[in-house]
Design a protein around this nucleic acid. Structure first.
Lengths: 193, 193
DNA sequence: AAATATAAACAACATGTGTAGTTTACTAGT
DNA sequence: ACTAGTAAACTACACATGTTGTTTATATTT
């Protein structure tokens, strides 16, 4: 968890950096405007003012671009709160739940038309990050962590997703207050280590 | 939950029934052989010995077919164990966890190459069924059920998915013994109603 | 500044998906 | 048995995706 920069960003020629940035910002703009499903590679290329084929020098497909964009954004949120530099505690768990809720609510707002294949992909990306973070938090534990961490990962994501889909939302703080015990219950043993 | 037959299957002309059946069995066969991503609509049509365009009279796309196939199979498993005809109890919860584990393990075995876009779709389909079943089980409860049911849905699916991905698997019974308390802990209050 | 390396543009092409209209074959009703 | 309705085959087409090879433009090295 020490370095969030990917291979994608190391020692890049300035042209490639520029192009990648154009692709990313165009994608984000079109996502907001049209929704994931309606955005084509040609749309992205037009908006970024690059040749369509150039897209494939950077990303294998639209899904790879989504993964990159979402991961980058989420890791940024994790790092902003220093969640990657701490251990398990109820307070850190609460912050993580809150972060995921905020993130998903923001995605829900920003994406014009949630589509069948968009949300599951976002889920996969975020759950992987949550899972790695929990594994990191619990690394020193002498107790078996695998199943509790698995359940916690899915529960956190499930709750946050539920929150993001609510038509009438309670305040985030209120929601997290109710959600927290449902997750924390399976992680209690790790708080007293 | 009383009727699992969909609109798709009511008052169908025999030709359409035949064609649908051909599509479904061809799909299942190709899924096993090539994996979801590698199967094209033309492949399915060839295997089923129908015209490719005819496919679209029945399913909007490959994903719609997957949803139909997986839902049908899963509902069949639920009905086999009469899980749709009971209420919440720890024993029924245990059976549900076991059923989902078995189902996902079988999918994992049957599908030649799990692909990025396949598993998330399966997940969406199965979670929806779990969620509806839990809602049905807890319908008479006077306590708030929404968040505990949400967490339980995701936890059940998460555990079953985890089990299906294990390279070295414990026995299913053993796994369910360990998994059960992690799910049941949030549903205890409903068992004593 | 010139030479070399590399990213991006360009052109051409193959493949799969999805739509629309017409004709043929099968089913249901009389 | 005949008629009307409907499912499937057929044809043609548009569109998006992804690959390949060549040329042009930009960045780095000498």
């Amino acid at each position: 968890m020490s370095s969030s920069l990917t291979v994608l960003e190391e020692k890049l020629d300035p042209r490639a950096k520029r192009t990648r940035h154009l692709i990313l910002t165009s994608f984000q703009s079109l996502l907001t405007e049209k929704g994931f499903d309606a955005v084509s590679i040609q749309d992205i290329a037009n908006h970024a003012e690059i040749n369509r084929v150039t897209f494939y020098a950077h990303f294998s497909d639209k899904y790879a671009l989504l993964e990159y964009a979402v991961r980058k954004a989420f890791i940024s949120e994790i790092e902003k709160r220093k969640l990657d530099l701490c251990n398990y505690s109820p307070e850190n768990l609460r912050t993580m739940i809150l972060t995921v809720c905020e993130f998903l609510a923001s995605i829900h707002t920003k994406c014009a038309q949630p589509h069948q294949q968009f949300e599951p992909l976002v889920e996969g990306i975020i759950k992987k990050q949550i899972s790695e973070l929990l594994a990191h938090w619990l690394i020193k534990s002498k107790l078996p962590t695998e199943l509790p961490a698995t359940v916690a990962t899915w529960a956190i994501y499930g709750l946050a997703f539920h929150y993001s889909q609510l038509k009438i939302r309670p305040t985030l703080e209120q929601f997290v207050e109710e959600a927290f015990p449902l997750v924390a219950v399976n992680l209690e043993q790790f708080a007293s280590e």
